[in-house]
Design a protein around this nucleic acid. Structure first.
Lengths: 150, 150
DNA sequence: TTCATTTTTGTAATCGTTACAAATTTATAA
DNA sequence: TTATAAATTTGTAACGATTACAAAAATGAA
């Protein structure tokens, strides 16, 4: 029983065209922070006439409407996330994978002495995931190897 | 009495060429998170032969060495910060200005159950600065004005 | 149907960044 | 000093993600 993209679009007063449903449904089925190309390649089989510009258009529309979030942890490409709840993104420097992490409630305390009106927050972590550097001691050479073989 | 860029480069075992000193000194004199063009325009007067590629090279070198930090809060352009201490970046959606905010010590608690090795962290806030939306009630029209006149 | 509006499409353009090789500068050795 | 090697800088060309734009297609209303 998967989430309903069409229903979500209607909740946000966005006309649920077939393309929009397909894009949002893909994001709601794959919480892997895909970029434009990944979404395009995944859907172009089912929708042969699909244009990449359409993917750009829809993802921008959904981002601006608050249906999804644009994850800018990648220097090169925009990534997108249908999970709009507060969470942290970790990016492995070696394999590039992005991992979601929960945040303990109210754990982030910032001195806002300048009366800034804060609407959104991004927390990005960078490091090494367990697959790229297992915690045992024998993996130093492996870690160096994966580091140099970028 | 300003900070010494040459000394800092030597501390990081980076040969203090005139260009590198100039770039780092600019960042240490201007904690305004400038982008490549801003640094280039500021220095090209004093160094007429300066190439923009050199700015890119040096800023990448300094970032990778940990002398400075690349601030990726901007979607389009890389920005750079000679302040490598832990702090938060706020970006005003309207004027684009980036403001530093301190973080209360140990205030960020994340459930790291996956044994991730975390090296770096970015915290980005987005919203409206006091200049773009003063806290008084008469400024609604002003806020709208500055919003539409992007 | 007809007309207006919205959505989608494809191409061209934009722009920040990088690749690359030549040119210059700096360091080292004889 | 001079010669040679290494490091740094430079300029151009290329790259690639994204956007602008106008035409085409689809949708909705009358």
């Amino acid at each position: 029983m998967k989430n309903n993209a069409q229903k979500k679009l209607s909740e946000f007063n966005i006309k649920p065209s077939l393309h929009r449903i397909a894009v949002l449904q893909y994001l709601m089925d794959h919480y892997t922070h895909p970029d434009v190309d990944t979404v395009f390649n995944a859907l172009s089989h089912k929708i042969p006439t699909l244009s990449k510009t359409t993917i750009y258009n829809i993802l921008k529309l959904l981002s601006k409407s608050g249906v999804i979030r644009c994850v800018t942890i990648d220097e090169k490409t925009q990534r997108f996330d249908a999970d709009t709840s507060e969470h942290v993104h970790f990016k492995c420097k070696h394999c590039g994978k992005i991992i979601d992490l929960p945040v303990l409630d109210n754990s982030i305390k910032i001195k806002n002495t300048q009366k800034l009106k804060i609407d959104e927050m991004d927390i990005f972590l960078y490091g090494t995931c367990p697959l790229c550097k297992p915690p045992s001691k024998k993996t130093v050479s492996n870690a160096l190897k994966s580091k140099s073989s970028k």
